[in-house]
């Protein structure tokens, strides 16, 4: 187990470095000058040159990359061009909101997906199964830019239950979490259903029932745990995506998450901040994937033995 963990951690390093390198090159390739964006058009040419020199933008891209890696090795992500704050502080400031929304969205997704997924597998082709299939289709078809305002219209304007947008109280969290959670719930629900159906038709389930265990008990005690591996894989991937932030949901609900910060950084050609955000997103993704893999150990004894 320990050896596996170390080997996975070693694998993470080239993945993260690869992502950061590609982003470094891409952000320097796209048109748009950060100095122009920072100083505005009316700045003096000499002033622009000074700033370019200050920010080391006058150096070859390879040198800038080397400096970036050197800073990274010391834990220094640089200073945001836009706000003049250290990039790390900018990102750390967004982490609570990002994690809160990602966690709440996952909870919403699980609250919908787990009961409906189990029910529809246990009662295949029943009304419940058809209904949950319809809900999954609905959840997948509704884009967040449409669902978000619709939820605001119903629950905020119509029923007056939640604030329209913002951040700070538990009430502010509900609508963005539901907006982000529904699509994920649909995927998890269908995944759980199909995975569970596969297990339900295994011999060990017939044997359990033959020993006198009720079908429901057999499903919940034996089949459910065995069907969780593929579900967990999807959950891990989805949670990684949630931690990368959702630009649309964060914009609609004025949520100060990492997604909005990334897009603002790209618009401002704030190279250090873009790199910092992408590094954070890459780290989140690989970490969640690693944690998912580690959970396999706990859930599947066969993997432990391998």
């Amino acid at each position: 187990m320990r050896g596996y963990l170390f080997s996975r951690l070693r694998q993470m390093i080239p993945v993260v470095l690869g992502v950061v390198t590609v982003v470094f090159l891409l952000i320097h390739l796209i048109p748009g000058d950060p100095v122009d964006i920072m100083l505005g058009e009316s700045a003096l040419a000499a002033q622009k040159e000074e700033l370019r020199r200050d920010l080391h933008l006058d150096r070859p891209v390879a040198v800038q990359y080397g400096e970036f890696l050197l800073g990274l090795s010391k834990g220094d992500l640089g200073t945001s061009f836009r706000s003049r704050e250290p990039v790390l502080r900018e990102i750390l400031r967004r982490i609570p909101a990002t994690f809160l929304l990602a966690g709440a969205s996952m909870v919403v997704a699980l609250l919908i997906a787990v009961p409906l997924g189990i029910l529809s597998a246990m009662r295949q082709h029943s009304l419940v199964d058809h209904f949950s299939g319809f809900l999954a289709m609905l959840g997948l078809s509704m884009p967040n830019f449409w669902l978000g305002p619709l939820l605001i219209l119903i629950f905020s304007l119509g029923l007056g239950l939640f604030p329209v947008s913002g951040y700070g109280t538990a009430g502010h969290l509900v609508l963005p979490a539901v907006t982000m959670g529904t699509g994920m719930a649909a995927i998890l629900m269908r995944m759980l259903r199909s995975s569970l159906l596969e297990e339900i038709h295994q011999d060990y389930m017939r044997a359990a029932c033959a020993r006198g265990l009720s079908r429901r008990a057999a499903v919940l005690r034996h089949a459910l745990a065995n069907s969780l591996i593929p579900v967990l894989t999807v959950m891990g991937l989805q949670f990684g995506a949630l931690l990368s932030g959702s630009i649309i949901t964060e914009t609609i609900f004025s949520w100060p998450g990492i997604g909005r910060l990334t897009i603002q950084a790209i618009e401002a050609r704030d190279y250090p901040l873009v790199q910092g955000c992408i590094l954070f997103i890459a780290l989140c993704t690989v970490t969640v994937n690693l944690l998912t893999d580690l959970l396999y150990f706990r859930l599947d004894p066969r993997i432990r033995h391998e």
């Binding site: 605001i152 219209l153 329209v164 947008s165």
Partner: peptide, 11 residues
């Protein structure tokens, strides 16, 4: 409040 979405400003 900083509300970038015009629909949200309206709502």
């Amino acid at each position: 409040k900083f509300l970038p979405d015009s629909n949200v400003r309206f709502l």
